[in-house]
């Protein structure tokens, strides 16, 4: 276990000394993940709301499809996007392969079903008396939709935090579409994978500690959203 304790002490030194490679990986992770979440939330929250709120032919199929995509393997997403953005692919001219924007595309696709499905679920789980109450208070259709969104605001916060947690910890998309290029597209997870395979534990442990800290913050936020929502529960 000597190499582990040695790795741990080196890891702490890397973090305290603000090691360039380590902080580059942290920065790449946070920037790509944040962008992916922004894209997924911008598209997914309205789509998920419509899926849960409205009734239309084919809704059950779309719901099933969205739920199925929750289990989409990250390497498969990586493969599909790779085919599109590789230099010979239909989007090859944009030079997205092995860049952060290329990773963002894949990570957005990973996060999108989570945001859509969970948002739809939040709308469907909302007490039906909420809708009736708003109608009996004279809400117009647009007011009804807006106040429904307001009622599930904590659930939507949980949806975004969950999607962030999923994307920040994935390896497949970042590795295949980012290419694990040092000081560019190397993320925390791909760096841990690489350093471990080289037998260099220090940077892996340092990044693992940061990843754990992020996981803790994500869970802290989830707990906060959950508690805040529960505080407002008011069924008889």
């Amino acid at each position: 276990m000597g190499y582990f304790s040695e790795g741990m002490s080196k890891a702490l030194a890397l973090l305290l000394n603000m090691d360039d490679a380590t902080f580059s990986a942290i920065q790449a992770t946070l920037s790509s993940t944040s962008c992916a979440l922004l894209v997924a939330a911008t598209l997914g929250l309205p789509l998920g709301f419509l899926l849960g709120y409205t009734t239309f032919p084919g809704k059950k199929f779309l719901r099933l499809l969205s739920d199925t995509l929750l289990a989409f393997p990250t390497v498969l997403i990586g493969l599909i996007v790779y085919v599109f953005i590789t230099y010979r692919g239909p989007l090859g001219q944009f030079g997205l392969l092995f860049t952060l924007p290329g990773m963002v595309i894949g990570q957005s696709i990973l996060a999108l079903p989570i945001v859509i499905s969970w948002t739809a679920q939040a709308v469907e789980n909302l007490d039906r008396r909420c809708r009736e109450t708003l109608l009996t208070l004279g809400a117009s259709p647009s007011q009804l939709a807006l106040h429904t969104i307001r009622e599930i605001r904590y659930d939507l916060g949980m949806v975004c935090v969950t999607a962030f947690g999923r994307v920040v910890t994935e390896v497949g998309v970042a590795m295949m579409l980012g290419g694990n290029i040092r000081y560019s597209t190397r993320t925390m997870t791909t760096a841990i994978s690489l350093e471990t395979s080289k037998g260099e534990f220090a940077q892996g442990i340092a990044l693992g500690l940061v990843l754990l800290l992020i996981a803790f913050l994500v869970n802290f936020l989830l707990a906060w959203f959950s508690d805040t929502r529960d505080e407002h529960e008011h069924s008889f």
Partner: peptide, 21 residues
């Protein structure tokens, strides 16, 4: 307007609920 048998109050303050309509 209808008062439901088990009224639903929105996730907000009493003032907000009473003045919502």
């Amino acid at each position: 307007t209808l008062l439901l048998q088990e009224p639903y109050l929105m996730k907000a303050s009493v003032f907000w609920n009473v003045t919502l309509g």
